[in-house]
């Protein structure tokens, strides 16, 4: 039986009086490649932020790797984000005044890794085909390259769960395809991928699609 990595039960989230998510229920198992699809403003990013421990929820239950996240302290949330979750954003979210290498090293720094970070980072860069850009700054790279750096950073601590918030949203189709092939490759390696997209074609590349409309899961 496949183990459950993400278990969302009756999840609701509201900002003030405005309800964003209503009674969401779904499970994600180890090795899944799940796409969350929906129109803009449907609550996809909020849902992903809750799963990625960036946002608190109003009611319901969210379990990550079998642990109820409502019991997590801030410290534990940080540890989870650092070691269990890898985040990939639409706008890459690289720190502009740090080199590519430094950006990728960042999670290792907070993980207090005792391994030789240089080797790990150079290997990660090789994996995404950017070994030559180690000392460049994000602004010196193209969008596709930046997203690959973001993926390298997301994978540097070998997390089990990859959360991707419209990873191809800022990229052209060629670069988008490269990023998607990387994600597929990761999935094949056993990583669980949860991806947000509003592009049907991209969503079709996932094993499972969850559609959200107006804060409710329409179909899985």
């Amino acid at each position: 039986m496949q183990s459950t990595i993400v278990n969302v039960t009756n999840l609701s989230k509201s900002f003030g009086k405005e309800s964003v998510l209503h009674n969401i229920d779904f499970e994600i198992h180890r090795g899944d490649f799940v796409a969350i699809k929906g129109p803009s403003g449907s609550g996809k990013s909020t849902l992903l932020s809750i799963i990625g421990l960036l946002e608190n929820y109003s009611s319901g239950k969210v379990s990550l790797f079998g642990d109820d996240v409502s019991t997590f302290s801030e410290q534990k949330k940080s540890t989870f984000r650092n070691k269990k979750i890898g985040w990939i954003f639409q706008n890459f979210n690289l720190i502009g005044d740090m080199t590519i290498s430094d950006n990728i090293t960042l999670p290792l720094k907070y993980a207090k890794s005792k391994n030789d970070t240089k080797i790990i980072v150079s290997k990660a860069l090789e994996n995404v085909g950017l070994a030559a850009k180690a000392n460049s700054y994000p602004a010196q790279l193209s969008g596709g390259q930046q997203q690959r750096v973001a993926i390298a950073r997301a994978l540097i601590t070998s997390p089990d769960l990859i959360l991707a918030d419209e990873p191809t949203g800022s990229l052209d189709s060629a670069n988008g395809e490269k990023v998607m092939s990387l994600l597929r490759e990761l999935n094949k390696q056993g990583k669980t991928v949860l991806m947000i997209t509003h592009d049907d074609e991209i969503a079709q590349q996932a094993n499972r699609i969850i559609t959200i409309t107006d804060g409710c899961v329409q179909k899985q």
Partner: peptide, 16 residues
């Protein structure tokens, strides 16, 4: 703020 957010995403605590 954005930078701190990124740092927190990759695991930085407030103490960090």
């Amino acid at each position: 703020h954005e930078e701190f957010k990124i740092r927190m995403v990759v695991g930085a605590t407030k103490r960090n």
